[in-house]
Design a protein around this nucleic acid. Structure first.
Lengths: 111, 111
DNA sequence: TCATCATATAAGAATATACTTATATATTCA
DNA sequence: TGAATATATAAGTATATTCTTATATGATGA
């Protein structure tokens, strides 16, 4: 509640892009790395990195390196998260996008 | 629930602007006309009209002419409204902006 | 160490956005 | 009808956004 108008508008602008909105919705269900997003969206790897950079700069996502890969997660520890959560709740789950990847053998599993 | 990603991203992009977001929040409490918005925001009248046009084109607001003035209202009869409502709930009320206008004698009352 | 894979950054181009000023349209009222 | 007021549209400009390709950085494993 009571998010500042300017900061809030900034968050909305970031989510106001089909690619970033879908990324966030995917991250809602599972962590994901750049190469997976690159396989999901019909976009170059730099384009994906640049979208993620914006989300990261706004602290909407956090990153964790796991070996060769950098995995991204929703950042639930920010004052913007309640707004983000409420927004994402209005959109259909995107787990299917990851399922497709898995069937194509493109899903990254590591531990 | 289950707003289409593309349409939803478009709505978020429209709200992802300080001016339009504040307009929508103001409209949440009362209908308003262009000249009032022009007094509230430090913007030219055409700039205000152009912002409203976008909101109107997306059917987020509706217009009603009352004599000389055109009043705008939140459109609650659209599939996007639940998303809009949930978003606006995260922001502080902007009734103060209208109160200031009233004190300056700039508030439009008609009927 | 060197080749490979994943990711990030830089630079440039096409397009979109948000203003401005000038002007057109619509309504009111003397 | 004609002046005044409210709003919309047009045209132009500055800046922001989102891609692309080329290249740099970082980690892995033979």
């Amino acid at each position: 509640m009571n998010t500042d108008m300017d900061k809030g508008a900034q968050v909305l602008k970031l989510l106001g892009d089909r690619t970033r909105l879908t990324m966030m919705k995917i991250l809602e269900s599972q962590d994901c790395c750049v190469c997976e997003f690159t396989a999901i969206f019909n976009l170059s790897q730099p384009a994906v990195s640049q979208h993620i950079r914006k989300l990261k700069d706004a602290r909407l996502v956090t990153e964790t390196r796991r070996g060769q890969w950098v995995f991204y997660s929703l950042n639930k520890d920010t004052e913007d998260y309640p707004l983000v959560r409420d927004i994402l709740n209005h959109f259909p789950g995107q787990a299917g996008r990851l399922k497709e990847l898995e069937q194509q053998g493109l899903r990254i599993f590591c531990d």
